[in-house]
């Protein structure tokens, strides 16, 4: 069976209190997940300016995972719900720009959900692998 050699490169912007801790738990629990994700820790998903997501997409990252606390569990009360609005705006802008909004994922993953974090990364890698490389990778005029 022929296998694609394309390995998606995914940037994760994870909130310090939930998803980052979830990723940590996945690691300490020795749960296997694809090594395609590079994690950047944020204090809150609500502190993520869309420019950082745009920057990595324009630089050729194949996907971006934004991880925050479940609604109602934000360490800063409502940062994650504000993040959801920003991500909605971001996806709308990407759509209008003819870019692929489905390269940007927003997931709520708590500190105790190490297995769910691993699942999410696996699911995302599969999805992006099917989607193919980010066409902007070769685009020099942006």
């Amino acid at each position: 069976m022929e296998r694609s050699t394309f390995e998606p490169r995914i940037i994760g912007f994870l909130c310090n209190w939930c998803t980052y801790a979830g990723a940590d738990l996945a690691g300490t629990s020795r749960i296997q997940y694809p090594p395609n994700i590079r994690i950047i820790r944020m204090m809150c998903s609500g502190s993520l300016d869309p420019t950082y997501v745009l920057k990595v997409l324009l630089e050729g990252a194949d996907g971006v995972l934004i991880g925050g606390c479940h609604p109602g569990e934000c360490h800063y009360i409502s940062g994650n719900l504000k993040a959801r609005r920003r991500v909605a705006i971001l996806k709308s802008v990407l759509q209008d720009a003819g870019l692929e909004p489905e390269r940007v994922w927003l997931r709520w993953i708590s500190a105790s959900e190490g297995a769910y974090f691993a699942e999410t990364v696996q699911e995302m890698v599969d999805h992006i692998r099917a989607l193919g490389p980010n066409p902007l990778k070769l685009e020099w005029a942006v």
Partner: peptide
């Protein structure tokens, strides 16, 4: 890394970021 880059850089990043900030 990319083989070539346009100068000035990040013109699209500029506009897409501006849109994210003020489009609403």
């Amino acid at each position: 890394k990319k083989g070539q880059i346009k100068m000035p850089v990040d013109t699209v990043l500029y506009h897409l970021t501006k849109m994210n900030h003020m489009a609403s």
